[in-house]
Design a protein around this nucleic acid. Structure first.
Lengths: 168, 168
DNA sequence: CAGGTACCATACGCTCGCGTATGGTCAAGC
DNA sequence: GCTTGACCATACGCGAGCGTATGGTACCTG
């Protein structure tokens, strides 16, 4: 019955697995909260913008951008997926984390909305679809964390089609 | 920096908030794990089947069934939403919980696939779309847990339309 | 070479929270 | 009315894990 998420990071265990003493840890970080805060900051600053930049520098076509984005976020799982899931459970219990996550969510959402608008979908509908896509993303990360295989090619392609379906 | 998810349930706190002593708690449950196990079982047995039964007894039309399902799972938030999110973070760290969650997921997925197939979508595509819908659901619960407002009517209606869009 | 700075280790105190030991109450049954 | 069983409370032992105290090494720098 191991601990889940952020509660599973213990400074003594971490220090040991790093082959370092606890005293050394506390030289670099004021306390456990400072470590977690630093991790949060790194995630907020790098995780999102790196992907957005990569997609934007790759192509201008909205459909291709969506494709490229899919490849990056739904592609091969990384250790960061677990973090994506954990950070959201954490946000439920910590107002500060919550505000950071909300900001990240807003930034990502805006990126997707812009793509969909460029693809010719009107703004209101674009917002709705972006919201749905983002829910899919969060849900996918959550499910990966307990072993569900990632969304396969045909499914992504289906979603791609549905998201770009013209509004009737 | 409060604890998140399942780690936040402590038997001493729980006993106190129930106006009961710790000794009394341990009369009813062998240990903390037994309590969590009981909660899991209750969730696995009731949470899913109750909704499925309600939807099935309401209407036969696939589109309406989907509508009815949406109303029930995306409607007014309950305390159970937080549990849905927490249980998934928990599953990442506990194999037994994982197997229960996987079983629940399978059951729910099958229900949605059947609806979509009844709506005339071929099986393979129905599976894909059901998968996507389920990701939306999990993602939505996760985001609710840190304060995102629930998906609004137009968004649900959009998703309803997209899910039932004929395959080209 | 004396002292300062950066970094690391060991050892301690302290809190939280689990599980258990022990005993109390109250109602039912012989 | 005494015993038994169900239920509850208080008090303890104990480990996990945080943060700190204290001291060491090694490298500068004047």
């Amino acid at each position: 019955m191991g601990r889940a998420g952020v509660d599973s990071v213990r400074v003594e265990r971490l220090a040991k697995s790093l082959g370092v003493s606890k005293g050394s840890f506390y030289w670099h970080f004021a306390d456990r909260a400072a470590l977690l805060e630093a991790v949060m900051q790194a995630w907020a600053e790098q995780g999102t913008e790196a992907i957005i930049d990569a997609v934007e520098s790759e192509t201008y076509d909205p459909s291709d951008r969506l494709q490229s984005l899919f490849g990056r976020i739904f592609g091969t799982p990384t250790e960061l997926d677990a973090f994506e899931a954990a950070v959201r459970a954490w946000a439920a219990a910590d107002a500060h984390v919550q505000s950071i996550v909300r900001a990240v969510d807003r930034r990502r959402l805006k990126f997707v909305v812009d793509i969909l608008v460029d693809a010719g979908i009107h703004k209101a509908e674009a917002r709705r679809r972006a919201n749905l896509l983002y829910c899919v993303l969060i849900g996918e990360y959550a499910q990966r964390s307990y072993g569900k295989p990632r969304l396969d090619g045909p499914t992504l392609s289906s979603m791609h089609t549905l998201l770009l379906t013209p509004v009737d």
